[in-house]
Simulated assay, not measured.
Amino acid sequence: MLKKWLSDASLSTVVAGFVAVLVGFTSSAAIVFSAAQALGANEAQTASWMWALGLGMGGTSLVMSLWYRQPVLTAWSTPGAAVLAVTQGITLPEATGAFMVSALLIMVAGYSGLFERWMARIPLALASALLAGVLARFTLDAVGAVGQAPVLVLCMTGAYLLGRRFFPRWAVPGVLVVGMVVAALQGQLNAAQMVWAWATPVWVSPEWRLGAMVSVALPLFIVTMASQNLPGVAAQRSAGYNTPISPVIGVTGWVTLLLAPFGGYALNLAAITAAICMGREAHADPARRYTASAAAGLFYILLGLAGASIVSLLAAFPKAMVLAVAGLALVSTIASSLSTAMKDEGHRDAALLTFLVTLSGLSMAGVGAAFWGLLVGIVALWALPARKA
């Protein structure tokens, strides 16, 4: 398989794989970092998260792309990380147990072939509203960061707007670069915290608590399947590829299960970054574009091995910069999710309630807002009469 990849690969596919990894990593690494911190992970444990996620994404992307000879790119669950980052009252061992339960649910949904039929029972409007409510909290935090570091955040916002106007693919990396430059000029980068070292896996023994299963495992499973895997399947189909979905989803589940104690909280099919590997820019011949996602897998593995350096780099950034990067990186996703949530007149009221409850950060009986938002939306969908256009 490797020999075939070497003969089919080209400079354009390797570059496409690198760009996919760069865009995917810089657009959401800050959110994963925030999720680890919210659960009480120390620096070594956070580095272990990067190690596990990098090796998980890299290994699954590389092996499945070479096996199927089609572009199969996986990613960490960005909305899943957002759910974790706003979760309260859950310890890291309890969260680890929840990661494993979510992974088992993903395996069942994948290998059983029930994925598409099961997820179809949750209206797309509610899933989109749930995602928008979770992610919007990050954008609100970014707005609040203006008060902490106005020059830094406003410069980053300007870079984002210019990037979206003139080079949309590079908008988020551009924001990160501008933020680093401005923070350095203001003396806000703590270079003393930077440690260049390879990541070391850190085992966290899982603990099992019902509250964590309900407030972490279930929302993590739902947003990963509905907001990540569904678009990932759509991206493959729209590009003309018919990769067998059930075994691919199943593989992401069991790899997550293996890596969960080390911080591999959720893996799924990629959509936006996968599109970079599936486009004509990667290669004119669709049959050779799998080499782009395989190259991306190799780059992800390297990033995972360097996880300790990445964590120390993120720790050196001022908090306002991390908040701004995370918030600006999610603006497009939030807008798209809200558009989808409000599109269907019949589901609009239920979707709005789901969004508002999720955005509120409500926590009752140790169960987080994502669950209550979805529950309120489902009840509202049943109880309220459908809107008429």
Rank of each mutant, 00 (worst) to 15 (best):
A274C: 12
G89S: 14
Q186S: 11
S61D: 05
V108E: 02
L105F: 04
A287I: 03
A41Y: 02
A120M: 08
S34T: 15
R237M: 11
W118T: 08
P247M: 06
G58W: 07
T340F: 15
S227W: 04
M364R: 03
G263K: 15
L305C: 00
I272D: 05
L104C: 13
V143I: 14
M225G: 04
K3V: 09
M194W: 14
R169K: 06
G263N: 10
F317I: 10
G211R: 08
L152C: 06
S337R: 05
R137V: 05
A183Y: 12
E43I: 11
A184L: 10
V134D: 04
A389P: 15
A16H: 09
G304L: 09
A197T: 07
A127M: 07
A30H: 15
W372A: 07
E116V: 14
A341N: 12
F33R: 12
G253L: 07
C155N: 08
L352A: 09
M194N: 12
L22E: 02
A295T: 02
V181R: 11
L353S: 04
M364P: 03
E281R: 11
G24H: 10
R280S: 11
G97D: 04
S215T: 13
G113P: 05
Q236D: 10
E281D: 10
L2C: 06
L381R: 07
S215G: 09
F221D: 01
A329Q: 07
P123Q: 06
Q228S: 03
V72A: 09
A369S: 09
A329Y: 01
L359V: 00
M213K: 02
S227T: 04
G279C: 08
R137Y: 10
S61F: 01
V32Y: 15
V178E: 04
T333S: 13
L124P: 07
T13M: 11
M278E: 14
L105A: 08
W5R: 10
G307D: 01
A47T: 04
A287N: 09
A365L: 12
V172N: 06
L259A: 12
V101R: 01
P286K: 03
A266Y: 11
W196K: 06
S238F: 05
F138L: 13
V204G: 14
V331M: 10
A306L: 10
T340P: 03
F221I: 00
P318M: 13
Q228W: 12
P244I: 00
Q228Y: 08
